[in-house]
Amino acid sequence: MKGIAVSTTVNGDAVEFVCDARETLLDVLRNHLGLTGAKEGCGTGDCGACSVLLDGQLVCSCLVLGAEVEGREIETVEGMADGDRLHPLQKRFLEHAALQCGVCTPGFLVAAKALLERNSNPSESEIRYALAGNLCRCTGYDKIVHAVHAAAGDLRRQQKARKKRKAAG
């Protein structure tokens, strides 16, 4: 098969790559673009370790073909922090010891970000169901749920402060 040339945006940067028609977005991120934050835990969409946002929509990058992302916007765990400032989710995961081995963590962070973008104040049950596509074998999920809950609070407070500033300014 001949290579397919693709132009796309990853974490805000324009990138171009040539991939084989069978290669997935995960293969492309890891093997062509050097972004190994997304992991392959299964390759069949069952573990969520390869979660990324595709035009803002949470997807398993192992179930997207590299050739499909022409002109799209991709966001990975590598793009979560704002410069040297960690995203509140990243901070809370550390504070709550929400990771042990850490291999599922990038996927959880991306999935949790997608959740908090559409629901700023999720209940425990909403958090659990929203993260059901991400497998963790170390933690029993307990500290992950707590960390997401805490980060949701941080983001709401940030939002409020931003609104206040806007109103004042």
Partner: peptide, 9 residues
Amino acid sequence: IGSDQIQGR
């Protein structure tokens, strides 16, 4: 059908 990730596709 599947997780939120799968739902998106």
